[in-house]
Design a protein around this nucleic acid. Structure first.
Lengths: 134, 134
DNA sequence: CAAATTGTATTACCGTACTAATACAAATGA
DNA sequence: TCATTTGTATTAGTACGGTAATACAATTTG
């Protein structure tokens, strides 16, 4: 599991870590039960304070993405979201709205925006199949 | 033109204003040539410092969304983005990727996410037609 | 049990983002 | 022209976010 981080990007380190973990799970590079790097190891790799990594892991645990055993380690959770369909939609709507507004703003046709989203999904499943023979 | 703003939301006021202006334009509640509220008037309505509104307007001008006449006022620009198709896609891709990742994370089917995005587009055109007879 | 490895809690520093107060400048309009 | 209305620039204060140093606690492993 390789993570990379940009210090001067303005984006907080812990958010960059969270995003990469989520992406890795969505792309099935990380699967249920897999162990994440220990906070100290990852922190050393990224030249960052262990607390920064810990913060990312804690946020991910709060979001139900992973479970953590104090003294043990951090592991990818089963990704069963117990959410109702309507609740999922409610949470994703702001993001979709923003995408629609920005696309309209730059006069991109809705169909093109939809193609773009389809491709984002395809990218996920592609990296999944690429790594399914390990 | 009614704007609303939440002070304790953590989201900076000027960003809230920017988002609402963009939305209003995308939904064609505001059209090319329309005047925006003077910074002082809007600032008074929102109980906010004029500079905060000015900052939003300046950012929107930087983004080519509106043009501003010092001493005159602020007006909605013609929304012709001179961007190449590939550049539009490049700018929107991170947002689409995020939507795909989050949807996958909460185990929402891609088709449902696409429906959601379609509806976001429809909401825009609906509020447009609702207000096209003025 | 003891040592090593794991995650956690506390504290503090530092920068910067956000907002505001105030004064300035350009354009409009009676 | 003169007053009013518009946007702008400068400065500053306050709060908060991000990161780090350090010490603590729980688990694993020999």
């Amino acid at each position: 599991m390789i993570f990379r981080v940009h210090h001067g990007s303005g984006v907080p380190i812990y958010l960059q870590i969270e995003a990469q973990v989520k992406q890795s799970i969505a792309a099935r590079l990380l699967r249920e039960g897999d162990a994440l790097p220990p906070v100290r190891k990852l922190a050393a790799e990224l030249r960052v304070n262990p607390n920064t990594v810990a913060r990312a892991y804690q946020n991910l645990e709060r979001d139900g993405v992973l479970r953590t055993v104090p003294g043990g380690g951090c592991y990818v959770n089963s990704q069963t979201s117990g959410l109702l369909y309507k609740e999922k939609i409610r949470r994703l709507k702001p993001l979709a709205d923003q995408l629609a507004v920005e696309a309209t703003q730059m006069r991109l046709a809705p169909s093109d925006a939809i193609d773009l989203l389809e491709n984002s999904f395809k990218s996920l499943t592609h990296s999944a199949t690429e790594n399914s023979h390990d």
